[in-house]
Structures are given as C-alpha cells and as structure tokens.
Design a protein around this nucleic acid. Sequence first.
RNA 1: GGGCGAGUAGCUCAACUGGAUAGAGCAUCAGCCUUCUAAGCUGAGGGUUCCGGGUUCGAGUCCCGGCUCGCCUACCA
Length: 729
Amino acid sequence: MLLEMQQRLGERIRAVLKEKYDLEIASIPLETPPDLRLGEIATPVAFELARTLRKAPRAIAQEIVAALGSAPHAIDGFAGFEVAGAGYINARLDRAAAVRDVAGELTAFAKSLASSPRGHVLVEHTSINPNKAAHIGHLRNAILGDTFVRLLRAAGYRVDVQNYIDNTGVQVADVVVGFLDLLKLSPDEVRTVVPATDRLLRGGGQKGIDYYCWDLYARTSQWYELGSDEEKAARKKVRLDTLHLIEQGGNETAEVAELISTAVLRRHLETMQRLSIEYDFLPRESEILHLHFWDAAFEQLKQTGVLYFETEGKNKGCWVMSRTGSPAEPAQNQTGPAGGAEDDDGRKDADEDAKVIVRSNGTVTYVGKDIAYHLWKFGLLGRDFGYKRFFQYPDHECWISAEQGEAEHPHFGGATAIYNVIDSRQADPQANVIQALRGMGYTDQADHYTHFSYEMVALTPRCAEELGYSVTEEDKKKPYIEVSGRKGFGVKADDLIDKLIAEVQPLVNEKQAASPESVRTGIARQIAIGALRYFMLKYTRNSVIAFDFKDALSFEGETGPYIQYAVVRIRNIFRKGATSAEAVFAELAELASQQVSESASQPTGVLYQGTTSVVPSEKRNDDGALAPEQSNLAAFLSGEENEDIWALWLRAGRFSLVLEQCVAASEPAYLAKHAFQLAQEFANFYHRHHILTEEDPRRKTFLLATAAITLRELVRSLELLGIESPEAM
RNA sequence: GGGCGAGUAGCUCAACUGGAUAGAGCAUCAGCCUUCUAAGCUGAGGGUUCCGGGUUCGAGUCCCGGCUCGCCUACCA
C-alpha cells in the first residue's frame, strides 16, 4: 500500500512542478515523517527547489500543497496535505481507504507479480569446502543467501540456487593426505572406513564424517609443520602431489577425494536442510577442470586482449591481466592488447601489479577458473556441464555436475543477473572476475554481477575460552578472533543448532506440558531455528558478528522467538474467539461497505455512540486541509488512543516497500527489522486493547481485523526470513 | 606502501542512502500476571555520533586532513 501511495504522490508532485514551474525532477524524495501526527508521507522537495526558484522553501511548499488540493491534481487515497517546519510537505492518507487497501493487498500483490515477471537470476551461496563440518561463518553465508533468494522470488524473479563445490582444492587434498599419509590407510581401507565412520559416528549420536574430518583436517595442518626440515619438505611434497593427482582425476587418490568430499557434501546439505535451506544445482570444480571450461575461456580472454603474455619482471612467462585502479575507468577493452604499463618516461615496463591468471608452468589460477565459471553462468562460455540427480528434497531435486550426465535434465546457467554470496575478504578476486567480463566486452553482464558481500562471523575472546581454546594474551585484547577451519577453531553449525534446541526444549516442555512430546520437540526446533536465522539476519551485511553464546542463545527482545511469540498470541486470540482471519476479513469488508451509505446521513465523525474513539477531525486539523472523516472505519482509526492501531495497519502496508528496499540494497536485514517492529507494535496494541472482551461488536471486528492483518504480515515476513510460525509456544 | 570496510548509549547494533527531537535490544533500576500466554508490557537513567576543518537551508551520513581497529594485497590452491 505505502509503496503505491508514495509512487502516486511522487508522480503528482512531478506533474505539479512541471506545470507550475516547468521543472523536471527525476525523482521526488519521499520519506516517513518522524511522528505519525505529522502525517504518513513527507517530502523535503521544496528545500531543493528554493535556490532555482529563488523563493523561500515554505512558500514553495505552500504553493505545491495548494496545487495538490485542486482539481487536476487531487489524489485518490489522500486525506490532505500540509506544510510543516521550514518547508516540509506532509501528506496524510485516507486511513479508511488505506485499511481497505492493506486488507486486500495480498491478492493485488499476487496479481501484479503474475503479470510482470522480472527475469532469471542466479544466486550462489554456501560454497563450503567439502573437507570439514560447516561452522557459524558458513551459517551466515547460507542464511543470508537463502533469505535473499526468498526475497527475490517474492519480488517476482525466477531464481536458481547454486552451491559451488571446490572438490579439487588444497583443503580437500589436506584431508586426503590425512587419511592416506597421516593415518596411513590404504585407498581400499578408506573406501570402507568413510561410509562406516559416517554410520558409526552418527549412530552413536555424533555428527558423522564432517565432524571426523574437522579434527583430521586440523591435525593434518599441524602435521605439515612438525618434524625436521626434511620431514616438513617431504610432507609438503606429499600434499602438492596429492593435490595434482586430485586435479588430474582418473586415479585412486582422486577417487578417495571424491568419496570423502561427496560424503562431507551430503552432510552439509543435511545440516542446511535443518534450516530450510535448499539448492537447485551443485557445480563442482572437478567438472570445470575435466570439461575444459578454462580452455574455452582462455581463447576468449586472449582474443579480446584481456590477457597478455608477460615477458619481463617477476611475472615473466605468465599470462596476466592488468588491474585497473578504478572500476569506473571506461573503455578498457578498446586499448587493445596491453603490452605492459607505460610510465612517465614513456619506457615500457613490466606491470608488477598485474594479476597472474596462468602461471609460468602453464597451470591456471583460481581466478582464471572463476572467470570461466562465470562466463558459463551468463551463458557466454559455449560449453555446459553434465547433470546428475544428487539430493532429494520434499518437493524438488538437487542436481550435481557430472562429466557424463543424465540424458534428461533441467537447464542451469544462462542467467541475466547473478549474485555471489561471498564474504568481504573475497572482494578482490570477485572484482577481478567482473573486470575480466567488462574487458571482454560483456559490460551488461558485468553490470548485473553482484558480489553480495558480507563481513565474517568471529568469536569473542570470552567465547573462545568457553569453548576450551587457549587464547593468547594478545588475542584477549581484541574485540573478536577470526575462526579458522585449518586450526579447527570455531563453532560447528550442527553443534550450535543442537545447543539452541537443548536450551529451549525445557521451556517448551514447561509451557506446553499438555502437548505430546512429538509436538514439543517440533516447537523447540522451530524456535531454535527462528532464533538462529534471525540472529544471523538482524545485522546488516557489513557488520562483523562477534559471536557470543549469550546473544545467540537469547530468546528475548529483538529475536526470532519474540516475533514468533506475537504470531502465537494472535493465533490464540482467534482460537479462543472461535473465529478465523478469513472470517474477520470478510466482516471487515462488510463493515467498510456499510458505511458508505451510512456516512451520508451521519454527522461527521460520530457513527457509534458509546465508543470512546470518536474525536472530531477538526481537533488535529490546524490548516483546515484535512477532509472530514467519512466512516466509522475511520472513527476507529482516529484519535489519540487509536494511534497505535493505525500505526500497525500502516506498518503492515509497508511490506512491498521494504521488499523493494531489500532487493535494491541486497540487504535482508531490512526485512528482519520490519518484522520485529511489526511484532513490537503488536505487543503494544495487545496490551492496550483487549480484543475478546470488547463490547462494541463493530469495534471488536475491527480489532480482530487488526490482529488478522498483523498475523498475515508477520507470517509472510517470517516465511521470507526462513522462519516458521509455530501454532503454540 | 596501496585498496576495501568500520569507529554512534556501559555492551551489541539501527538510522529509509543529505532531512524534522539520533533510535532498538541487552545490561541496570522502579513498576505490571484472577484478563486473548510475563518468550510480554510500562517507566527511568544512559550521547561532544573518534578528532579537526570544509561543502549548504540542513551533516552520524558527502569532501579534505589526522587517529584507532579489522580484512585484502603470493606464479600457494
């Protein structure tokens, strides 16, 4: 509702400016006044115009307001306009009309989405190295990514979700070395041990192969640093040889790597499924290598001159890409093949700062492979993966890349826009890929390539000590310490989820003592997940989360359970009142239609004797710009003691505005905030107005409708945050 | 050295991208359960928005100069 009203007002003001002053303003700044009493929408546009029009802002504002009230500009849904302060224009909504709008918004929203699909988007998130258990840092990535996917879908985009699997990297090699060289198992033994270990550990209440590898990975990393220099060198060589065998494929070591990484990957998918996070496709690095994606990309990169062969300096013998300082620098591709930077003397020199893409030994770097992968994402590579079914979700399948896939498969890639959910430390390599695309002439694709960047999750020193890690004096002084898979330093995702559940379960058992155990465990799970997802989403992206169990295990205040609790309270009202949201909306519609006829014969603002809500509209109308109240619906919405009710409807009507802001700014936290504020305003309303004991039947209907609209919006928002709305708690 | 990000209440964070009196949650203190669930509500205290300049009707937000902190900056992958 509010989004549409803002757009409508903006358009009208533009028309007024054009007509009165012959001014074209691209977009009228629209905001929310600091206080509801000032109105619902405000614009400071008069300030901007003061200079060009050589008039006082207040005078301009008054002229605009006068024009907005007059015939050709009068706007549906607005009750009046006022000038306030030094020149703000404040608009008041027709509250009764707004309420009718909000109540019918769900169907209107669905229709508008169906009529205007918005394109094919690809979101990559999670992307955990398949060599150890997922930790809290990965949780932030996956939860942010999954929530953003939900937001995009709600906004009308077709979205494919990808989880990139680096199954041939050094991290996987390290675990393979751990099995084969540290534990000295034969490949055959690994083949029997890995699945057995998984079953054994999970049967015994442990978490399985991912947990086992967590420790083994940390041990192996330490093992490289132990012993004499010769031993160390030998171990490093084993590591490198193992890596090369894995990259190459078609050998026993690669088979072992595949076995381990696939087993760990399955565990990751199971962990994420606990959080309602699902994927459509898992592209793996092994296929990017074996299907020679790089070769195709290399040709394009050479032809467009993005890559050049360095003949001087430290990068001699490499294929490199020069780095542009500013991404805004235009027409990089028009300079043709660069021969190295030219300095002030005009002397050709090696560009030492250039990014190496192909090493002098002929191997390609990670960025190179990433460029190839992203050409594929946009459908520009001319090659495709093979596809195999991999993981079954309740209502769809997740596919994985394969050298030889199944004959029938869905098509992935070829997106018009992509989002990569990757932490901010990867900003540089991401920028390199974008720069390469731009350099190749794919400017449109480069413009629709978004690095959805976020800051890491770190541990507070206190938290690290709680977990039993030894913390150095130096680290104790820091606000937070970076987690490290290599050191085995961090909080595992499944552990955190389990801990959350263990924390709420007693509470649920106490409050829902009458419910069967299966119901109670279900509720505990919903609350735990709600707490976790909300915790990861309430922070804006570029704020470092200094993880602390105290905050993460909290169920009070600005948390998921607080919002869930509001939902449960509303559901209880409907249960006790033996009615439903649908029935109440129908009654509200009736109420709204009745008064049109009644209002003609009724004196302004007085429709129902005995309600305390009737306040003459002139009372808060200094400028006389406000239209007279017309209905008893409006009567319920006016007056000091009903401001909280109107605030709730208004907040409910913000949804589409918030959704657009989230998508435009790639910022799910805005929706998290919105949901919390709505719940908070409801709690306020809940304590001030007792619904079921309300004696005036019409007012009772209206209060019920207010609860119903809150419920609808809370559930809708929580769903986009990936948080379930419990029936009881 | 260069690049990116951050610095706001005791703590953790917001502030609709330049707008009106800088807001929440924790924590502290004082109240509210015979009502639709107290996972809640009401109230109080708590601020030189790191420092110094500048831009303008208007700056936590923009520009310049400092200070502090974090991350990135390998022909490893």
